[in-house]
């Protein structure tokens, strides 16, 4: 059983920081193991010019560290830090985007965090989780307009890409996180003081 600090404390406790870092590293590695799957998918889609779909399809997975950190630690900033840790892991493992990984991690962290923030950090259950999935999809898409050159695509492709990303976030960042939270609560492995 792990005791997590009460969210009303403003100070970051060592055990919370460690928990969030470990969660980020685990998520980073789970998706690292899948790297080859992503590469094969992207390579298959590349000649058709559809490679960005591979990215948007899996984006929700890359971003899972943020909502998981938020629901575990229940503190403002947890999602942002979790995603930054995960991005740092990806960069250290040799991600294809180099330093841009960290910038994206920052944007993704803020995007996911925003969902909990609009609910004033009061809801850490399905409402907060789905709200974070929605802000996550919207804000990262704006970032992609610049970083990935999405702004130069046809409107039809843009809509398709956004829907793909939205579904990915709703699944990985929403449905899956809610299911994980249920399992954790059922197991009773977290206590808050």
């Amino acid at each position: 059983m792990q005791t997590v600090s009460d969210s009303k404390r403003r100070h970051w406790a060592l055990r919370d920081v460690l928990l969030l870092a470990f969660v980020a590293v685990f998520i980073g590695f789970i998706f690292w193991v899948l790297g080859p799957v992503y590469n094969v998918l992207a390579a298959a889609l590349t000649p058709m010019g559809l490679a960005p779909f591979a990215n948007d399809l899996l984006l929700g997975g890359w971003m899972m560290a943020a909502p998981l950190a938020s629901i575990l630690i229940r503190q403002a900033g947890a999602g942002l830090l979790g995603e930054l840790f995960a991005a740092a892991v990806e960069m250290l493992l040799g991600g294809q985007w180099g330093v841009a990984t960290l910038l994206s991690g920052l944007v993704q962290g803020i995007a996911s965090e925003a969902g909990f923030a609009v609910l004033a950090y009061k809801d850490w259950h399905w409402r907060g989780i789905f709200s974070s999935a929605v802000t996550g999809a919207v804000i990262t898409f704006i970032w992609s307009l610049f970083r990935d050159g999405y702004a130069s695509y046809h409107i039809g492709l843009l809509v398709a890409l956004f829907l793909t990303r939205f579904v990915s976030l709703l699944f990985f960042g929403g449905v899956l996180v809610v299911a994980i939270q249920k399992l954790i609560e059922k197991a009773g492995v977290l206590r808050r003081d």
Partner: peptide, 23 residues
């Protein structure tokens, strides 16, 4: 598979155990 919550649940259990031990 990656879409199964069990995988993440077990990973989080390890994260909880290890973070506590490390702390």
């Amino acid at each position: 598979h990656i879409w199964e919550p069990q995988l993440y649940f077990k990973a989080i259990l390890s994260a909880i155990r290890w973070s506590q031990s490390l702390a």
